[in-house]
Amino acid sequence: MRSLLPIGLLVSTVVLLAGCTSSDSSAGVASPAPATPSPTRTTCASPIDFGPLPEWARAGFSGDSSMPHAMGDRGDIVAAIFGYPLAVSRPDGSSNKILWVSKVEAPPGDLVIEAKLDDSDVSVTRRVPGGPGPSIIDLPQHGCWHLNLSWPGHTDAMGLVYG
């Protein structure tokens, strides 16, 4: 009986340590992402708002300006998405039309879009001649694209998903 006590104590200690070890070792392991999308900016796409455009972006619109749009991370530019959802290919012949509207005044110059596909080495550059304005922005692969936007004296960024 005397020999059972140390073995029982040893087994209890191992079980307790195993419980602590598995709990502690999982602290460094990333949990899977939640199944429901978050309403705030994630590591991927900027939130798409379907309500009215910001007041400063409504020039040229009459009536209700509600449409899909994404705000730049700094709030200096908005992408009004006429071709929503954005897509790599469109069998119906429609396009990925985006109206870029700058909140801040800028001297004339192109809007340069440096786009990088999430979790890859794929990147492309697109230009909107004359600065923020109407454009067709086609990207080569589906997925989440991080866009670094620059126009004379200003920069902003956003993420857009192409299906």
Rank of each mutant, 00 (worst) to 15 (best):
S66T: 08
S66I: 12
S66W: 10
S66K: 11
M67D: 04
M67F: 06
P68N: 08
P68I: 07
P68S: 08
P68F: 09
H69Q: 11
H69D: 08
H69G: 06
H69T: 06
H69Y: 12
A70Q: 11
M71G: 00
M71N: 07
M71A: 06
M71L: 15
M71D: 04
M71I: 11
G72W: 02
G72F: 06
G72C: 04
D73K: 09
D73E: 14
R74N: 10
R74L: 12
R74A: 15
G75I: 05
G75P: 07
G75C: 08
G75L: 05
D76C: 00
D76E: 13
D76S: 13
D76N: 15
I77Q: 03
I77H: 01
V78R: 06
V78C: 05
A79Y: 02
A79E: 04
A79K: 10
A79W: 08
A79S: 10
A79D: 05
A80C: 04
I81V: 13
I81K: 11
I81D: 13
F82M: 14
F82T: 10
F82E: 13
G83M: 12
G83S: 11
G83N: 13
G83C: 14
G83I: 07
Y84I: 03
Y84W: 15
P85V: 11
P85N: 09
P85G: 05
P85D: 07
P85C: 10
A87V: 02
A87C: 01
V88K: 14
V88W: 01
V88E: 13
V88N: 02
V88D: 01
V88I: 11
S89W: 00
S89Y: 04
S89N: 14
S89K: 14
S89F: 05
S89C: 02
S89L: 08
S89V: 14
R90M: 06
R90I: 05
R90Q: 11
R90S: 12
R90P: 06
R90D: 02
R90Y: 06
P91C: 07
P91V: 08
D92E: 13
D92N: 15
G93C: 06
S94D: 11
S94T: 15
S94G: 13
S94M: 01
S94K: 12
S94P: 00
S94R: 10
S95V: 14
S95M: 13
S95K: 15
N96W: 03
N96M: 02
K97M: 10
K97E: 12
K97H: 12
K97C: 00
K97G: 09
K97P: 00
I98L: 02
I98H: 04
I98D: 01
I98K: 05
I98C: 00
L99M: 13
L99R: 15
L99G: 04
L99H: 15
L99S: 13
W100V: 05
W100E: 03
W100P: 09
V101I: 13
V101W: 00
V101E: 02
V101D: 00
V101L: 02
S102T: 01
S102C: 03
S102R: 04
K103F: 03
K103Q: 14
V104Y: 00
V104H: 12
V104R: 14
V104W: 02
V104F: 01
E105Y: 13
E105F: 13
